[in-house]
């Protein structure tokens, strides 16, 4: 049994910072490390737990330096400690409003108001919903987006996992510790997860992969009890009895705070140049929320370092 401590209380009453970082995941915390080393007073706002989305990941195996892999929770804690070591102020507060049309930028949170001279947006992504009948009705009543949170509820049960990308396959391997049988549905005619994950999937006799299949409806009474899945090639629909469903069908950007202020691509990701500059001066974006071609921890930390470097230059030029 583990005991994880989120070190988040602060007695610092400061309300203005040179840089505010929205989002305490790998990109945001890396930016905080670099800015801290540049002696820039920096605040990081994280609405859930410092570490960001990776704290939901049981094991990260493709992050350099950890040949045996590292749990997302532990990596998130290390990032947090690292950022704090160089002086970053990390607050667990949810941003309710950003005012970006003039300097200093104004930040309203669940606990108070702050200002900053520059901003790094590292708000990440959320799981995309698939938009089929029953999805809304049975969310949290059998449908889950967090395997680490909810997989234990499906001990000895049959479940379906939507999506055979890295997340879908990796989480299916985790869920297989609890569930009796897992059916993964993938709309494409092949899984898109890394080959090493596909090998593990093939070796796991609890998991069945159905490519060219999609879930077309979730059904049940008060709780989810079955799903209809459709064979995309021949149109055949069959029903599966399942108690649980986990959806990993891609990501949507967490852009609610800035979607009317910054240029976004057609999927809602923040457009940046190679220096992480957004369409508004003094505002930078890093990690999964920006229009990057590959979303990984390794790419997010690179973004975070560049964004911090550019924010520092911006502050120096505008002293």
């Amino acid at each position: 049994m583990q005991f994880s401590l989120s070190k988040k209380e602060s007695k610092n009453e400061k309300k203005h910072f040179s840089t505010a970082i929205i989002g305490g995941g790998p990109a945001g915390l890396t930016a905080a490390i670099y800015l801290g080393r540049s002696k820039v007073d920096t605040i990081v706002f994280e609405k859930i737990t410092p570490g960001g989305y990776i704290i939901n990941v049981e094991k990260i195996e493709n992050y350099p330096g950890f040949p045996e892999g590292i749990s997302g929770q532990e990596l998130g804690q290390l990032y947090t400690l690292h950022a704090e070591r160089f002086g970053a102020e990390i607050r667990t507060e949810e941003i309710t409003k950003l005012t970006l049309n003039e300097l200093p930028f104004r930040i309203k949170t669940s606990n108070g108001s702050y200002t900053s001279d520059s901003l790094i947006l590292a708000t990440g992504t959320s799981n995309r919903k698939i938009g089929v009948p029953g999805e809304k009705e049975f969310t949290n009543k059998g449908i889950s987006f967090c395997a680490t949170c909810d997989a234990p509820f499906f001990e000895g049960e049959d479940v379906v996992v939507v999506g055979a990308g890295n997340s879908g396959v990796q989480e299916s391997l985790f869920i297989s510790k609890f569930a009796k049988h897992i059916t993964i549905t993938e709309m494409l005619d092949h899984p898109t997860a890394e080959p090493i994950l596909i090998d593990r999937l093939n070796e796991n006799d609890k998991i069945e992969l159905l490519v060219s299949h999609s879930v077309v409806s979730f059904k049940g009474d008060k709780l989810l009890s079955n799903v209809d899945i459709k064979n995309i090639k021949n149109g055949e629909v069959k029903n599966l009895k399942v108690k649980g469903a986990f959806i990993y069908a891609g990501d949507v950007p967490n852009n609610d705070l800035i979607k009317d202020d910054l240029e976004l691509d057609n999927k809602g990701f923040i457009i940046t140049d190679e220096r992480m500059r957004t369409s508004r001066e003094g505002i930078f974006a890093a990690g999964n929320v920006r229009n990057t071609c590959f979303r990984q921890v390794a790419t997010a930390i690179g973004d975070g370092a560049i964004a911090a470097h550019e924010a520092y230059k911006f502050l120096e030029e505008n002293k």
């Binding site: 049994m1 583990q2 989120s6 859930i48 737990t49 570490g51 704290i55 939901n56 929770q73 667990t92 967090c146 680490t148 949170c149 909810d150 234990p152 509820f153």
Partner: peptide, 10 residues
């Protein structure tokens, strides 16, 4: 709660 749920302490 479950012990592995990061959203639960809030």
């Amino acid at each position: 709660i479950t012990h592995s749920c990061p959203y639960c302490p809030g």
